[in-house]
């Protein structure tokens, strides 16, 4: 019994290895924050491209939709392996410059940047779909009102549609961010040392899982508060809508879909 408890919660070992685990967790946090910000932006770009109007933008829309379908449909692990393998091969063969194929920006190792890139490529596609749901939830009358005061499609998106859409989807975006944070651990397959790898190193050296448990605790210290924040945001949004956040169609007659009636 004691062995079992010790295997998971060897406090002495946790203390001894705390620095190395924390160093790993710092890498995890950097991966999560950088790729989180990058995929938030990239996802928004994709979502806006997907909504471009008119026939001229059709090819761009098709490419965007194809991109989103592909990267939502394949495992992140596969993207990591393919991207790291191909970029280093291209750089080695001189097809692309080394600074691009084997980046070491900001003093971070190449695998770190492969991780950021893969996470951004994949989570950008996820987040694009979240933004899209938000954009489509903005009543059609908003775009019409914006156009009727002379705004271009781009201005209407920027000043009217996207600000409302983003507000609606902050909770699901944060959920995606939590998922992204956990998925950063996949970068171990390309040789990056983050918190899970640090815990694994402890496990191999001491035949004890306490390092991994410590890693799990560090994750939970961030993910559980984030989950509570999401809950609170959802509750607040609900309270807002119940109070009558939308200009509800009031008494007298059925509610016509905003601006769609042919009457």
């Amino acid at each position: 019994m004691e062995f079992i408890l010790d295997y998971y919660f060897d406090i002495g070992l946790m203390g001894d290895e705390f620095d190395s685990i924390l160093a790993g967790f710092w890498v995890t946090v950097k991966l999560a924050v950088l790729s989180g910000i990058a995929s938030l932006l990239w996802g928004l770009v994709l979502a806006v491209l997907r909504q471009l109007p008119g026939r001229a933008a059709l090819p761009l829309r098709v490419i965007t939709i194809a991109y989103i379908d592909v990267f939502r449909g394949i495992p992140l692990l596969l993207v990591l392996l393919l991207l790291s393998g191909s970029l280093s091969a291209f750089a080695f063969e001189g097809v692309i410059p080394t600074w691009l194929g084997q980046p070491t920006w900001l003093g971070e190792p190449t695998v770190f940047w492969y991780g950021i890139l893969s996470l951004t490529i994949t989570y950008g596609a996820y987040m694009a779909e979240v933004y899209r749901a938000g954009i489509e939830a903005v009543p059609r009358g908003q775009m019409e009102a914006a156009r009727s005061v002379g705004m271009t499609h781009g201005q209407a998106m920027r000043y009217v549609i996207v600000p409302q859409a983003v507000r609606k989807v902050i909770p699901p975006l944060l959920n995606d961010f939590i998922a992204l944070m956990k998925d950063t651990s996949l970068v171990v397959v390309i040789g990056a040392v983050e918190v899970v790898q640090a815990g694994r190193d402890v496990q191999s050296a001491f035949f004890n899982g306490s390092g991994l448990v410590l890693a799990a605790i560090l994750f939970l210290l961030l993910t559980i508060p984030l989950a509570r924040v999401v809950d609170r945001l959802i509750a607040r949004e609900q309270a807002r809508t119940e109070r009558g956040g939308r200009p509800a169609p009031v008494a007298g007659g059925p509610a016509p879909a905003a601006g769609q009636s042919a009457g």
Binding site: P139, P247, P249, P256
Partner: peptide, 20 residues
């Protein structure tokens, strides 16, 4: 369209104010 929208104002049944 720009020529038109700068000369023609429109008010809608559902108001369509920008809620934010």
């Amino acid at each position: 369209v720009d020529f038109v929208r700068r000369r023609v104002g429109m008010v809608f049944q559902q108001f369509n104010l920008f809620p934010h």
